[in-house]
Design a protein around this nucleic acid. Structure first.
Length: 655
DNA sequence: CTAGGGTTAG
């Protein structure tokens, strides 16, 4: 009788436990259930243990460590349990651990099945080291799974991730009857290695297509910069879904074609589609990049009306849009009042926003506030914090954060963090210290590191070190036009005209094209982009006319063009003409012509503002009594009453 | 329990 009683009770417990697990939503909840199960010995039940593990490894957030501990207490895990853990770890931040679990499975003589391979290959795709992929492929063949549809498809996408098109193709050919998913994976593999024609051929040959097939083509075209093909394919698509629209919006925005990105968004609304969080973040990112504050504000109203403001990614994109459009107050308002839920991205974005606007101290304060809210910083948070320190000259603080991020926070320092330190020392003028720091780095310095030091050489006019850096850069990345421009400016400032000419010569010998500079300005919710080129348009002519008038007035106020920074082997008059054509000058002139006297003129430039334009902006702010905000490649410049918020970074260049 | 497309921070 007693025995039956216990048995009866345990069945009840069993059912109760399963029903509890079904409603389990958080890690602490799971821990309670687990404790409860251990008390009654139910945690040894394979079904319960499996369900606990599945929840911890795949469904719940932040429960992966717990799932590994759970797993370690299971005496003889069945294949399902191994697979569950392999799966959970494969999508984690440490895909490497997934491979370790797979190895353990083999050591424990539990034969891997098709599920094990599908999961572990995904881990390999997310993993850095290239050799594991080949090894796993040989295991797949050894166990006879190479013709398995799912395993084969994962192999294809793993090789696609690696950029090994030939291997991806072999894996694809091993699949006897590839379905549409497998076809989409091999098309993606072609785009990954920029084989657009290969992708097109496969797309034609596909026995049948779903909407993803078309979307893969759209994404591939936009990533390859073939926007014309993307557009015409999009027009010919039978069924455009939400992803198709988002792909077009983000694809055009990431190629700098913000007007087209807005256009697709408007079209989406016209077609009666409801924008989702992805299309909204895409179009907000276009506003952010173009500096289109007015358009961004309209979207903000749209988002509030549609009640989408509570979606974290939308809030993050909104905050970022305001920050990049110079609206730091609006950005902090969104952050403080409109985002009920915040993620690490929200906090990091706000820290970066403050840093971008030169509020280094406030950025650090916010970092500490974030800690009080028990939000754990990640590697990117530290990039923003270090950026804040270097742009506000907070040397001690920056140094401390750099030390603590590893010792106290346990975050591995990446090359980007080292780059921030080079920038910190370099901006402060400690060039030798920056150089020494680079030589003692635990990893090989890349071109970005040296380029940062070259930038510092340019600020502080150090020709000797710049020449040394030039050699490093010519080994690592000899085709970056920005490096040549920077170097020739350093020579020009030092009056070394022969060297300027030689840099210029090597540029043309190696057929290196300067990155075309553009500046954009939003007037009446329309974004106008100016490029220093020979083409003519009505808008450009209007800007040019106004600019001539402005420059005349500035000259009467005593302005002398700074032609030093312009390449030196052209005639004086041509030089003046060249700096007159700078896109930021055209944009500001256009703003003066078209915008009424009270409004702030906001300009976005894709490169760094040139010293002459910087001076001109200061003068205009004084003579015309206008506030001008220029966002360039690295920061905001806010001009008013003849001075700039960047504390005249450029003055050092001239002295 | 499995595979493919679009997403914000540097």
């Amino acid at each position: 009788m007693r025995c039956r009683g216990i048995r009866h009770m345990s069945i009840n417990h069993h059912l109760q436990c399963i029903s509890l697990l079904r409603d389990c939503k958080t890690l602490s909840h799971l821990k309670q259930i687990h404790a409860h199960a251990s008390k009654t010995g139910l945690d040894a039940d394979p079904l319960i243990a499996g369900k606990l593990l599945l929840l911890a490894a795949t469904t719940l957030a932040d429960a992966l460590d717990y799932s590994r501990r759970l797993f370690s207490h299971i005496p003889s895990p069945d294949p399902f349990m191994y697979n569950t853990l392999i799966r959970g770890l494969s999508e984690s931040d440490h895909p490497h651990h997934s491979l370790l679990t797979y190895n353990q499975m083999r050591r424990d003589s539990v034969p891997p099945d098709s599920f094990s391979f599908a999961f572990v290959l995904k881990a390999a795709a997310n993993c850095k080291s290239p050799n594991v992929g080949w090894q796993l492929h040989s295991h797949v063949i050894h166990h006879g799974f190479e013709s398995h549809l799912f395993v084969g498809t994962t192999l294809v996408s793993m090789y696609a991730e690696r950029g090994c098109l030939a291997s991806a193709r072999k894996a694809f050919d091993d699949i006897p009857q590839p379905n549409v998913v497998a076809w989409n994976a091999i098309v993606t593999a072609c785009f990954r290695v920029d084989d657009v024609e290969g992708a097109e051929r496969l797309f034609e040959r596909m026995p049948w297509k779903n909407s993803t097939s078309w979307n893969v083509m759209l994404a591939g075209y936009t990533k390859a910069g073939e926007l014309g093909s993307a557009r015409s394919l999009f027009l010919s698509m039978p069924n455009k879904d939400a992803v198709s629209w988002s792909t077009m919006i983000t694809g055009f925005a990431s190629n700098g074609l913000f007007g087209d990105a807005f256009g697709f968004f408007r079209e989406l609304l016209r077609e009666g589609c409801r924008p989702n969080e992805v299309s909204l973040t895409g179009v907000l990112s276009a506003c952010a990049q173009a500096g289109a504050l007015e358009s961004g504000k309209i979207l903000h109203a749209h988002i509030e009306k549609a009640g989408l403001g509570s979606i974290i990614s939308v809030g993050n994109a909104l905050l970022d849009m305001y920050a990049r459009c110079g609206g730091i107050l609006m950005a902090s308002r969104v952050f403080d009042w409109e985002m009920e839920k915040k993620s690490i991205v929200s906090w990091t974005s706000m820290i970066a926003a403050l840093a971008m606007h030169g509020y280094g101290e406030e950025a650090i304060q916010l970092f500490h506030k974030m800690e009080e809210h028990r939000m754990r910083p990640d590697g990117i948070t530290f990039i923003s914090v270090l950026y804040a320190c270097s742009h506000s000259g907070l040397m001690e603080q920056g140094h401390k954060f750099f030390q603590e991020m590893e010792s106290t926070y346990g975050i591995e320092r990446s090359i980007e963090h080292y780059g921030c330190m080079v920038d910190l020392y370099g901006r402060a003028g400690l060039l030798d210290k920056a150089y020494e720091f680079i030589t003692n780095m635990p990893m090989k310095p890349n071109a970005i590191i040296w380029r940062t030091l070259l930038g510092a050489c340019s600020i502080h006019g150090n020709v000797r070190l710049a020449e040394h850096v030039r050699e490093k850069l010519s080994e690592l990345d000899p085709s970056d036009s920005g490096d040549y421009v920077l170097l020739s400016n350093i020579y020009a400032v030092a009056g070394k005209w022969k060297d300027v000419a030689s840099v210029r010569r090597s540029m043309s010998e190696q057929r290196i094209q300067k990155t075309p500079g553009w500046s954009s300005i939003e007037v009446d919710k329309v974004v106008y982009t100016f490029v220093a080129s020979d083409d003519i348009s009505d808008v450009k002519e209007e800007a040019h006319k106004k600019l001539t008038e402005v420059m005349l007035r500035l000259k009467m106020e005593g302005y002398v063009p700074e032609i030093m920074s312009v390449l030196h082997d052209v005639e004086e008059e041509e030089k003046e003409d060249a700096i007159l054509r700078h896109s930021e000058k055209l944009a500001v002139a256009f703003g003066l012509a078209r915008m009424h006297g009270e409004s702030v003129i906001r300009i976005v430039k894709n490169l760094r503002i040139c010293p002459d334009c910087h001076t001109v902006m200061k003068l205009i702010s004084k003579v015309y009594k206008r506030e001008i905000v220029v966002r360039d490649r690295s920061r905001f410049h806010s001009f008013s009453e003849g001075s700039c918020s960047c504390r005249d970074y450029w003055e050092q260049l001239k002295s």
